[in-house]
Design a protein around this nucleic acid. Structure first.
Length: 479
DNA sequence: CCTGGAGTTGTCCTA
DNA sequence: TTAGGACAACTCCAG
């Protein structure tokens, strides 16, 4: 044991060494560091991590542990108790962490902070995962923004709140290694069956993987981002969302890396657009912080009386990608197979569930929560409320995606649909997004029998659109 | 308090 | 084939 008592760094959603304010603050004490991660499922309540996220976390912890020379300590269960045990064991006097913003975490962390201070420990927390924290941005009257654009102008784009340069990685950290805790396997994050193999092929969780992804995006994806980001058949998305969610890379780092590109000819617009997407992540966290009921309740109360349908069979077919609407099925199958879905297609499948099937957005939110590797309470909840039109900055009720038009517009050559819905791959482009409109001879030529090897559409698009329009109209506008 | 412009992501019909 | 307007009315926000 070291003669100097160590300090504890509690890793949470900041699974990286560079630009990690808590780690930096601990390092600056000059004392040995005990790095720890605690899996505390019970505190999360309904928002216990989903299966895909747990797979990712396992890989990411493995990567972090390796970057820390195998010194990461792991605990399972109550966080305050684990930290107290660790402090007792090591004689540590300080605990450092970066803040999280989910309502259940804010409440839990406040409790923990009090308990640790009562036990005589010093506690420091920092902002490690946002460009700016939700409480720092308000309108001149002190109330929170509900509209993205003015929020963005007042935030990232203002002098006052311009993103800060990231911190470097501490060099030559001294790590302490008490013999406490559990093994990674004992966290039981890995699923018992091997459904994750295709997911594993597509992703490299961890800080190194995050940087490789960012570099690949900056080299190949960002040019043409503004238009290309809408194309699920192309590679213009950053795919940084899971890395950002787990804090393997920080938004400050990403913001700074785009800085040099912004001055290159011809891509200023693309860079601006990408940065505004980072700001959308900030806005989701901002909404969750100021409206903590965001994951549970319609922000616009009038939607509480919307006549949602109950239809377990339809929900199951949506989940499986078995709706008979190709772009919807492609998206849902991409999600199931890869733990990810292209953003444009997320909107299409969400609109289909909410508007065409008229099922409550909670169903979609919960399914995404379990299956997405980037499942994030703020982004997921804000996104579903946005599509449902129940959120802060509501969409006009008549904005109902037509999945056939969306398919034709954003997957014009059908590459995306053919990849994930191979049973209709032989259909010509003209009919690929609406097989039910194809003449019998064309279907026969493509070896398709609707209702046999690919379903008839689960709802009539026109009728269900009108049904939803009527239901939304009936709500009126009064709160 | 009043005013007026604006609001991520759409669809459909008509000329 | 393509471009433009209709589709409601509301709330948000800055001046």
């Amino acid at each position: 044991m070291n003669t100097v008592e160590p300090v504890i760094v509690w890793f949470r959603q900041d699974l990286r060494l560079a630009d990690n304010p808590a780690l930096r603050a601990a390092f600056d004490t000059g004392k040995p560091i005990v790095p720890v991660f605690i899996l505390d499922d019970d505190s999360a309540g309904e928002w216990k991590m989903g299966a895909a996220s747990r797979w990712w976390l396992h890989q990411s912890l493995e990567s972090l542990d390796s970057a820390l020379d195998g010194r990461l300590r792991l605990f399972r269960g109550d966080a305050a108790a684990s930290l107290r045990e660790l402090a007792r064991e090591t004689g540590a006097t300080h605990v450092f962490w970066n803040r999280c913003y989910e309502p259940w975490r804010i409440a839990r962390d406040k409790r923990i902070k009090d308990q640790l201070r009562d036990a005589g420990l010093c506690v420091n927390s920092d902002n490690g995962s946002l460009l700016f924290e939700p409480h720092t941005i308000t309108k001149s009257d002190g109330t929170p923004y509900k509209v993205f654009t003015p929020f963005y102008r007042k935030g990232c784009l203002s002098e006052e709140h311009a993103p800060q340069p990231p911190l470097s990685k501490p060099k030559q950290m001294e790590l302490a290694t008490p013999a406490v805790g559990v093994t990674l396997a004992e966290l039981e994050l890995m699923p018992s069956t091997h459904w994750y193999e295709e997911i594993a092929q597509q992703w490299q969780p961890g800080e190194d993987g995050a940087w490789q992804r960012l570099q690949a995006f900056l080299e190949n994806g960002i040019r043409g981002y503004k238009q290309g980001r809408n194309r699920p058949d192309q590679n213009h998305c950053s795919r940084l969302s899971p890395h950002l969610h787990f804090g393997e890379i920080s938004p400050r780092q990403v913001w700074q890396e785009t800085e040099a590109l912004a001055n290159q000819s011809g891509i200023a617009d693309d860079v601006d657009h990408f940065r505004s997407e980072l700001a959308w992540r900030e806005f989701s966290y901002y909404l969750l912080y100021h409206f903590p009921q965001l994951p549970e309740d319609n922000l616009q109360a009038k939607f509480d009386r919307f006549p949602w349908r109950e239809d377990d069979a339809a929900l199951a077919r949506w989940q499986r990608g078995d709706t008979g609407v190709p772009i919807v099925d492609a998206g849902m199958r991409q999600l199931w197979r890869t733990g990810y879905m292209h953003n444009r297609v997320r909107m299409v499948v969400a609109s289909f569930l909410i508007k065409n099937l008229m099922l409550h957005w909670h169903h979609g939110q919960m399914w995404f929560w379990d299956t997405l590797v980037d499942a994030d309470l703020a982004n997921n909840s804000a996104g579903w409320q946005w599509v449902a039109g129940t959120g802060a900055d509501a969409a006009p009720y008549f904005r109902i995606f037509n999945p056939v038009l969306q398919g034709k517009k954003f997957d014009p050559d059908g590459d995306y649909v053919r990849r994930y819905v191979p049973e209709i791959a032989e259909l010509p482009n003209r009919y690929l997004h609406s097989p039910w409109t194809a003449p019998d001879a064309v279907l026969a030529e493509a070896n398709i029998t609707l209702g046999k090897n690919y379903p008839e559409p689960i709802v009539d698009l026109k009728e269900s659109r009108e049904r939803a329009l009527a239901a939304f109209k009936d709500l009126g506008t009064a709160a």
